[in-house]
């Protein structure tokens, strides 16, 4: 009698343990990236640049491939519609992302001598996500453009070497 009871409880315990193990096994799959920028941290990073000013969509053109195979090097061009005269020019261009470990990609400072408000570089993307480029104009206004990028092979944030 007591033997049977013990057996039953062992079996139940085993099943419970198995279930728990399965649950534990599932958790790391979901939380494999510990440090990830979120839309909230991106918004905070944008706030540190623009302060309380409003960011209007327009004037900025963000060229980035909509589908990239390799997130380790993604060509990106940002251009801003501006006459680039000493009276009216683009002061800086700031690029942000949603899901890399950090929300910043780069800050680029131009001036009226640039002639054309356009920069190109190559970026890393750790996931499919939204990219935002924000331009600060000489009159203090901020303009932005966004682009969604699908990444099939993510950049090396969790790669083990």
């Amino acid at each position: 009698m007591t033997m049977r009871k013990a057996e039953g409880s062992t079996r139940r315990r085993f099943l419970e343990l198995a279930g728990a193990a399965a649950a534990i096994g599932a958790v790391p799959v979901v939380t494999v990236r510990e440090a990830v920028a979120t839309p909230e941290t991106m918004a905070a990073a944008i706030r540190t640049v623009v302060g309380t000013a409003t960011v209007q969509p327009g004037k900025v053109k963000l060229d980035i491939p909509p589908l990239v195979e390799n997130g380790n090097t993604v060509p990106m061009t940002v251009s801003v519609a501006s006459p680039m005269t000493p009276q009216e020019f683009v002061k800086s261009i700031h690029v942000f992302n949603e899901k890399n470990p950090q929300p910043n990609i780069g800050n680029f400072f131009l001036g009226p001598r640039a002639g054309r408000a356009q920069i190109s570089t190559r970026v890393r993307l750790a996931d499919s996500q939204k990219i935002i480029a924000i331009a600060r104009l000489s009159d203090g206004s901020f303009w932005s453009a966004t682009a969604d990028v699908v990444v099939t092979l993510a950049a090396c944030t969790e790669e083990i070497i």
Binding site: N72, G106, N107, G111, A114, Q118, I119, T121
Partner: peptide, 18 residues
């Protein structure tokens, strides 16, 4: 021209400007 770079810039930073 000046730029602040972050880890999100790919290896061998390539930058163009005018």
């Amino acid at each position: 021209f000046r730029a602040d770079l972050f880890p999100a810039i790919a290896a061998n930073p390539f930058i163009t400007f005018f």
